[in-house]
């Protein structure tokens, strides 16, 4: 029974990926991608990783789908400016030998991966046992939160730095034209929906953050939900950019700065970088996580909202290159 379910799930996942890759219509690829995210969340459930399922459900179903729909809509809206342009471009048709080569290399990659999975070396230490052993010292009860924010907090610190760099690049890329977006008329039903759905989203986001210290949940999942709520507000036509813009300057870097401050201030007490005193570890971790949630939510939202407004391409070679 178990195995049948897993096999079906895996095959469905592969089918979805194939559907993303071989759709001639770009929008079909996007919907297939949303379905892929949902199935991947189920796979994480089957792999005993409810934390990952939470993150994937928030990100795959909420954020990535919205980002991709936005990009494709942007593309098709622009294609309307020069009629006759194909919505779907599969690129130049390669010659026969240049078709065989990719197939060949993909098969080679697959076989190499199979070999790597089959003849994996035995790990010299058992990481789960190590984590379970030192869990009482970490200040939290949920092992994944302990790994993320205590045992391997370097990763988390660098991750938030990477996110910060991404958003700075996105802000730099933003064109200075600030014309109002078309189609932002307020729909009363949509307005009502967002008024009822966003508060529970925020509550659930905080609940997930709080739950992170003893069961699946934590800063990343909470941040993704917060970002989804903000994106939803923006889609529903609330002008939160003004608010977000002022909040952004404080919020974006806050998580990183707080994390770094805590990490270095423990050095005053003569401890190495990024180790917390055991007595207050739980409180410190929760404090850092709360700031991280806030920052991650704002960063993911601003990656969505910094997208250039839909204006016609300015170049003179519109038609020719698009025909490809």
């Amino acid at each position: 029974m178990n195995l049948a379910f897993d096999v079906l799930l895996g095959i469905a996942l592969l089918l979805c990926a194939a559907g993303v890759f071989y759709s001639r219509d770009l929008f079909r690829a996007v919907v297939m991608f949303i379905a892929f995210g949902l199935l991947l969340a189920l796979v994480w459930v089957r792999l005993d990783a409810p934390d990952l399922a939470l993150a994937e459900a928030a990100i795959g179903a909420g954020l990535t789908g919205v980002l991709m729909i936005d990009a494709v809509a942007h593309l098709s809206a622009k294609n309307a400016h020069h009629q006759g342009a194909q919505f779907d471009q599969t690129g130049a048709r390669p010659q026969l030998w240049s078709r065989i080569l990719p197939v060949f290399s993909a098969v080679i990659i697959f076989i190499l991966l199979l070999g790597a999975i089959w003849w994996r070396p035995d790990a010299p230490v058992s990481l789960p046992d190590l984590v379970a052993e030192s869990l009482p010292e970490s200040g939290v009860e949920h092992p994944i939160t302990a790994v993320l924010l205590n045992f391997r907090s370097y990763d988390t610190l660098l991750e938030i730095a990477v996110l910060l760099v991404a958003v700075v690049v996105a802000m730099a890329l933003k064109p200075d034209t600030s014309e109002p977006e078309a189609g932002n008329s307020k729909d009363p039903i949509l307005h009502g929906l967002s008024a009822r759905l966003v508060p529970p989203m925020l509550v659930v986001g905080v609940y997930i953050l709080w739950a992170g210290s003893y069961m699946p949940g934590g800063a990343f999942q909470g941040g993704a939900i917060l970002a989804a709520a903000l994106v939803f507000l923006k889609l529903a036509g609330f002008g939160i950019e003004r608010l977000a813009d002022s909040l952004l300057r404080i919020g974006l870097a806050l998580g990183f700065i707080v994390f770094l401050t805590v990490a270095t201030s423990v050095m005053i007490g003569g401890r190495p970088f990024l180790t917390y005193p055991e007595s207050v570890a739980g409180e410190l971790i929760f404090f850092i996580e709360a700031m991280l949630t806030f920052s991650i939510g704002l960063i993911l939202f601003s990656l969505f909202s910094q997208a250039p407004p839909p204006v016609a391409p300015t170049s003179s070679l519109q038609g020719e290159q698009d025909e490809r």
Binding site: D187, I189, L190, L193, R196, P200
Partner: peptide
């Protein structure tokens, strides 16, 4: 029960939006 309620609200509104 909250999950059911949320899906009810969301699906009803989504159906309206897409029909519109």
């Amino acid at each position: 029960l909250l999950i059911w309620l949320l899906v009810l609200v969301a699906s009803a509104t989504a159906s309206y939006l897409i029909a519109h």
